Amino acid sequence: MKVIFLKDVKGKGKKGEIKNVPDGYARNFLFKKGLAIEATPANLKELE
């Protein structure tokens, strides 16, 4: 799953980066803790 990092996550990504991460990791950790959001076309446009 492609995500946009909202905060730095040690060993995974830095704020503003767009990366592919495992689906479970994104849903169960990154999204729940507010560390990242899904890289949807709308979210990507908002980032620019």
Rank of each mutant, 00 (worst) to 15 (best):
M1L: 14
M1G: 03
M1I: 15
M1N: 03
K2G: 05
K2S: 10
K2R: 14
K2P: 10
K2F: 15
K2L: 15
K2M: 15
V3S: 00
V3Q: 00
V3A: 01
V3H: 00
V3F: 00
I4W: 03
I4L: 10
I4G: 00
I4Q: 03
I4A: 03
I4D: 00
F5H: 00
F5N: 00
F5G: 00
F5E: 00
F5I: 01
F5V: 00
F5L: 07
L6T: 07
L6K: 03
L6D: 00
L6W: 01
K7R: 12
K7H: 13
K7L: 09
K7G: 04
D8M: 04
D8V: 04
D8W: 06
D8A: 07
V9W: 05
V9F: 03
V9R: 01
V9L: 06
V9E: 01
K10H: 13
K10W: 14
K10G: 08
K10Y: 12
K10L: 13
G11H: 09
G11W: 08
G11E: 05
G11I: 01
G11F: 06
K12M: 15
K12S: 14
K12G: 13
K12R: 14
K14E: 06
K14Q: 10
K14G: 06
K14W: 09
K14N: 10
K14V: 11
K15M: 10
K15E: 06
K15Y: 05
K15R: 13
K15L: 07
G16N: 07
G16Y: 08
G16P: 01
G16M: 06
E17P: 00
E17Q: 10
E17W: 04
I18R: 02
I18M: 07
I18Q: 04
K19E: 03
N20I: 15
V21Q: 04
V21F: 09
V21W: 02
V21I: 08
V21L: 05
P22L: 08
P22S: 10
P22I: 06
P22N: 10
D23F: 13
D23G: 11
G24S: 14
G24Q: 12
G24T: 12
Y25T: 04
Y25I: 07
Y25S: 03
Y25D: 05
Y25M: 08
Y25W: 11
A26K: 03
A26G: 04
A26L: 09
R27S: 05
R27F: 11
R27A: 07
R27H: 10
R27D: 06
N28I: 05
N28P: 00
N28V: 04
N28K: 11
F29Y: 14
F29V: 15
F29T: 09
L30R: 00
L30V: 00
L30F: 02
L30T: 00
F31H: 02
F31V: 08
F31P: 03
F31K: 03
F31L: 12
F31Q: 03
K32Q: 09
K32H: 08
K32Y: 07
K32W: 08
K32S: 10
K32I: 13
K33R: 14
K33I: 09
K33M: 15
K33V: 10
K33W: 15
K33H: 15
K33F: 15
K33T: 12
G34K: 09
G34Y: 08
G34E: 06
L35N: 01
L35T: 01
L35H: 03
A36H: 01
A36N: 00
A36F: 00
A36W: 01
A36Q: 01
I37F: 04
I37D: 02
I37E: 04
I37H: 05
E38I: 08
E38D: 04
E38F: 05
E38S: 07
E38H: 07
E38W: 06
A39D: 02
A39R: 01
A39M: 06
A39K: 02
A39G: 05
T40M: 05
T40D: 05
T40S: 10
T40N: 09
T40F: 06
T40W: 04
P41W: 11
P41E: 14
P41T: 11
P41S: 11
P41N: 11
A42H: 13
A42S: 12
A42Y: 07
N43G: 08
N43P: 04
N43E: 06
N43S: 09
L44A: 06
L44H: 06
L44Y: 05
L44E: 06
K45W: 09
K45A: 14
K45E: 11
K45D: 10
K45F: 10
K45Y: 09
K45T: 09
K45G: 09
E46S: 14
E46L: 15
E46P: 07
E46I: 14
E46V: 14
E46H: 13
E46K: 15
L47N: 09
L47Q: 09
L47G: 06
L47Y: 14
L47E: 07
E48Y: 10
E48V: 12
E48Q: 13
E48G: 14
E48T: 13
